[in-house]
Simulated assay, not measured.
Amino acid sequence: MRADEGQPDGPQYPGSGRGSWTWSRTAETRRVILDAARDVFAEVGFADASVARVVEKAGSSVGSLYHHFGGKAELFLALYEEWQGSQEHRAASAVAQARHEGETRPLALFITGARAFLAGSWEGRGLADLFLEKDGPPGFELMRRTRAHAWLRQNSLLLEVDDDPIGRVTVAVLTTIIGEASREIVTSTTRDDADRITDAAVAMIERLGVFDTA
């Protein structure tokens, strides 16, 4: 009997079994395909991108792409979900840190989250710019609207405004300022321009945030 007979194929690590290795390889494959899709979509847009071009860039196969994602549309939506998730995490982490440091004023916390969100818009501008265009798969507009509504609800809770017409309009206006500032930032050519846009947006929010009585 050979020494390696009956042993699982592939590298083994201390404290890990074959299952964890398989998961690691799966995650790595997904990451490589997503990164390739991000580059291709950013370069030519969704409509002109092809599965063949993505897998060529990823050094993968069409079968692997369809196995992990289902197709070009699902790849685009997965990238959008990933980007939105990273933006939400960035803003939430900044707010949590501010609270930990003793900040309790709703408007100050909102501005902290806004600054973090806009910083992420600059850092991820290559991909973010793609999501601002109307070039996307079926269902993308609905997903974007659903995310926008969820963002409004989160901001309402953060700002602690009353659930009445004035409160809803105030939250919508402040959230729109962040959204429009983000649009401008992702098309900026320098970090200085992005910072100026952020500062201008924050100044507008501060002027409009007269409800902050904390």
Rank of each mutant, 00 (worst) to 15 (best):
R30E: 09
P8W: 03
G102P: 01
D199W: 06
L34N: 01
F211V: 04
R38F: 02
A52H: 11
A150D: 09
A3D: 13
A172W: 03
R183G: 11
Q7C: 02
L130M: 11
R105K: 13
A214N: 12
V40F: 01
V62T: 15
S60I: 01
L34G: 02
P165V: 04
D35L: 09
M204L: 15
H89F: 09
E141W: 07
K57M: 07
Y13E: 14
G120K: 00
A119M: 10
P11K: 01
A94Y: 00
A128D: 05
D135A: 10
R153Q: 11
A128R: 04
G113W: 01
S86E: 15
I111W: 00
Q84I: 15
H89I: 10
S156N: 08
S50E: 07
Q97D: 13
V169W: 14
R207Q: 13
R38N: 08
L127T: 13
P11L: 08
R191Y: 06
G124L: 03
Q12S: 09
F76A: 06
S156H: 07
G70F: 05
E103A: 05
E206Y: 04
A148E: 10
R115S: 04
S20N: 06
R196A: 14
W151M: 14
E180P: 03
Q7Y: 02
G124A: 10
L130W: 11
A37N: 10
D4T: 07
D212A: 08
E180F: 09
A36I: 02
T189A: 15
T190K: 04
G59K: 07
T26H: 10
L118A: 06
E56S: 12
S156C: 10
A150I: 09
G124Q: 11
R183K: 12
S16P: 00
S16M: 14
E74P: 03
R153W: 12
E180I: 09
R2W: 13
A37P: 06
T190A: 05
H89R: 15
L142T: 14
R53H: 09
V173G: 05
G17H: 03
V54H: 03
